[in-house]
Design a protein around this nucleic acid. Structure first.
Lengths: 338, 338
DNA sequence: CTGAAAGCGCTTACAG
DNA sequence: CTGAAAGCGCTTACAG
């Protein structure tokens, strides 16, 4: 059917070895032969068969991005950052949803075992027990990089945002505005991002001589729904906190929606700070003050660390990387009403 | 390094052929041998090398999803639908950003030519000239399915929403509310979705004895920014239309934000209808009336059509599929002020 | 600079 | 039910 290296060799009157060299390492072939071969290659639209090459080279030239939820739009920008970087190195990107995969009973690292990919960028910080067991195997471990999320007890290369710093930024901003009764909305239980951001919030609060009592901590997920539900709780608190720090923009947007439905105004009655700076944060009403994560940068860096880890490109160096975050001041925060 | 079928064969005391059969077609091996082999397989954690299998079988067991913009969150849910379906059939999912790929000078169908994937689900209805030329080649054409978007002049299997019907639904809703001066906000020039939705709007308008003059048509992109910018134009129109139909929720959300900044109220001054029903549509203020697309269904259907096309699973049957859309009535639309 | 040959790890007619 | 052997399409020491 499709033309192979053998055909090209025959037509060009050389061996397959020479064709292969002309394609992979042109300097090892005379200019004249190379040109003749390339002409034949062009004319017949020959492309190296990736499976044959991978089998022979023992290298897949592909990376798997493992997401906790492929449908979550938060990841799309990160994914595009990963792809941008991989493309520059001629590597392909496979994606899989770790939760959906577990449902099938297959291992999330199957791609690695089957040599389909050279490494996996794991964006899921809470793998199942089965996955954790596999992560303990050296031949899996040495091919994994964590991005965004990570395992508290693991020792893997990683790329992440400065989550603590982000929590602190939110606090400094609110305290600077005059707030001293601040609530905090968590993400899912055991999620490392939630824990880090909360730690950052507590540290910064302490620096200002404030604290975060248990009665001011709520939330259970990163979603719009969770934020919306939390509005009922916040609205019912007495005294009501004058500001809420949310661990995601989705929570914040859901929360603002819920507060409004209860007749509460943002920022007049309650200031709200998000986390992430997703695209719509600037366009909701009021526009959302939030902690910006550089998601493209996160994706690119994750791919870079991965490529280093598996020995593509530069020599292996720093295999961890924490990206700075920044405060985006918009209209969902204001000084508390006197 | 890693254990191969040869090792398993040796340890089990059978030929590699028998191991292969035990793994792929257990009925062709005696129960006893099979069990013995499986035990060895389990114990040594053997996995079939995917490149060797693909090379031999001439099948990649993988599909490429080609998106116009990997970073656009609209696609994430579709992608998860595709993955769900592929997973059920043991197929892997590769993703690539068509615009980013073109930037590198490589062909977007390279994966197909290199046999890395068995087919490509194309979500980009406006391929470059180079890509169109390749789509004309039979061996490419027979492995492509369009999803969501498509080429007006192509004849490919496809999966799409009922875009015309969606346009009509929006009109019927607004006219039912009493609107008779309706504006329309387009997406990018030449985008087929925009054209279809506009056609649906015009047809429905005509049915009600109304029309859509050029002076009531604006917009140039599906983005939040484009919607925000359009607010200036809408606000400046005299007389001002009492309702606006947007070709995406992003446009609608951007528009509402811009209108509010100009002191206009939605829906009191202007009713707004979106298209897509993205997750945040229900949580913006006011919540957005929109045309819902079943994105998970779109993704699943696209994968199903693809699998049929390349002969996996069921016999090939209907290779086109138009999914119904539905009106989600929320708070961004109301009767026009008298 | 070039070629002959081995081999990457599988699967599958073909025989028995 | 099982095995020996060919071959999928490459790449790469090894020789010359």
């Amino acid at each position: 059917m499709s033309v192979s290296i053998k055909d090209i060799a025959k037509i060009s009157g050389v061996s397959t070895a020479t064709v292969s060299r002309a394609l992979s390492d042109p300097t090892r072939v005379s200019e004249k032969t190379r040109q003749a071969i390339m002409e034949v290659v062009e004319k017949h639209g020959y492309r190296v068969n990736s499976h044959a090459r991978s089998l022979r080279r023992q290298r897949a030239d592909a990376i798997l991005a493992l997401l906790p939820d492929l449908g979550n739009p938060f990841f799309s920008v990160i994914l595009s950052g990963i792809e941008l970087e991989l493309q520059d190195h001629g590597m392909d990107l496979l994606v899989a949803d770790s939760r959906a995969t577990e449902r099938t009973g297959r291992s999330v690292f199957n791609h690695l075992h089957a040599s389909r990919v050279d490494g996996v960028i794991c964006l899921d910080g809470t793998p199942t027990d089965a996955a954790r067991a596999e992560l303990a195997e050296p031949d899996v471990a040495e091919r994994v990089v964590f991005a965004c999320e990570w395992m508290a007890d693991g020792d893997f290369p990683y790329v992440r945002s400065d989550n603590r710093g982000g929590g602190a930024l939110a606090v400094d901003h609110l305290v600077g505005l005059g707030h001293c009764d601040i609530a905090f909305l968590r993400g899912p239980v055991d999620n490392i991002l939630t824990e880090e951001r909360e730690a950052g919030v507590r540290e910064a609060l302490a620096k200002h001589g404030l604290d975060l009592p248990d009665t001011r901590v709520g939330g259970h997920d990163f979603t719009l729904e969770a934020g919306f539900e939390a509005a009922e709780w916040i609205a019912g608190l007495s005294p009501r906190p004058t500001a809420v720090i949310c661990t995601s923009d989705q929570i914040a947007i859901g929360l603002m929606s819920g507060l409004r439905e209860r007749g509460l105004s943002v920022p007049d009655d309650v200031s709200v700070v998000g986390f992430d700076d997703i695209a719509s944060a600037a366009y909701v009403t009021p526009s959302l003050t939030t902690i910006r994560q550089d998601r493209i940068g996160l994706g690119r860096a994750a791919a870079q660390v991965m490529l280093k880890r598996i020995g593509v490109g530069k020599a292996p160096e720093a295999c961890v990387c924490t990206l700075p975050v920044s405060l985006m001041t918009r209209h969902s925060t204001a000084a508390p009403k006197a």
